[in-house]
Amino acid sequence: MSALGAGASTTAKNLAVFIDADNLNDATALDHVLLTVRSLADRVIYRRAYGRPESLKSIHAVLWRHGVRPVANLIVDKTTTDSALVIDAVEAVCTNDIHIVAICSGDADFVPLATWLREKGCRVLCYSLANKIFANSESFYDDVVLLDVVEPESPPDSEAKVAAPAQASPSQATAAPTEAPPNQVKPTPPAVSSTVVAVPSVKNILAVLPELRTNKPLHLSKAARKLRDAGVLGEKSSSTPLFRRFPAQFELLPPEQPNTVKYRG
């Protein structure tokens, strides 16, 4: 399972992180990523986030906490997020001794940048929300970390329920109004915090299920059992949604009610 920060060397000297705030603008996920990259190198010398003003505003508290420099789009008809990020990343690598570059976006527009960075000798990491990553991303990055933001279920609000007042009898309805009771303080609902779950990558799945590389169908029950034993899949989770996250790599058969999975290669 590609946990946050897994797969990257911890001996690097300098790291740069570039955030596409128009793509990865979930504050909880971004906070986890920025905490993680700190441990991947001695110094994080570039910390920048690019996007529309409203995108940057939604994560401004996280950017402030981690000392990330926001870079707003120019006021033109088209967004300038991608171009600004690419220019700064190229300049950073050309003028500094940077060993790792973390791109926080699942946008395929950054594939040429990732390819160029790898050719320059940089280790290139991708952090993305699981529902925003493009297909076959692992072919262009050294490591891809997918993130799911999970909202825990709120506990039953039984204590907060107030019994409905009994219906007044006719004699009570004509009685003189009494002094209204003091305002009752409504109980504060429990705070709901989000958690980030790293989604297994194609590389993780193939490491647990190497038989898929033969391009022969594998029964889903067998695949699920091995994935659970390896800790890649939850104890009660189904493997079908996991394989459906990567339609370019895995084919579920038959499509209507699948019982096997095949690696497309």
Rank of each mutant, 00 (worst) to 15 (best):
P156T: 13
P155S: 10
R48T: 10
T28K: 07
K57N: 12
Q249I: 06
V197N: 13
A21N: 04
S238R: 10
H32L: 07
L147E: 02
R47F: 11
C126S: 08
S139G: 14
S201A: 07
A164N: 12
H60R: 15
F140S: 05
E251S: 13
F134C: 03
L113G: 01
N23H: 05
L34V: 08
R264C: 10
V124L: 02
E256P: 09
S154K: 13
A230H: 02
I45G: 04
G67Y: 04
L125I: 14
T115G: 02
E91A: 15
F243I: 06
I103H: 03
R43G: 02
H66L: 10
P241V: 04
R123Y: 14
P152A: 02
P156F: 12
L146K: 13
R245M: 03
S239C: 15
G67I: 05
N131Q: 14
N96L: 03
A89R: 00
R69D: 09
A6I: 03
V37I: 15
L40T: 07
T95Q: 13
L85Y: 04
L147F: 04
E138N: 06
I100R: 03
P152H: 02
S2C: 08
E119G: 07
P217F: 05
M1F: 11
L206R: 01
P181G: 07
D20L: 02
L40M: 13
V208H: 00
G265N: 11
T214E: 14
D97W: 09
W64T: 15
D97H: 15
R228F: 05
S221H: 15
S55D: 10
Q249S: 14
K120S: 07
L252D: 03
K78C: 00
D157S: 14
R213I: 11
A130H: 12
D142R: 07
I19S: 01
A166D: 10
R43L: 00
D31C: 06
Y141A: 06
S105M: 04
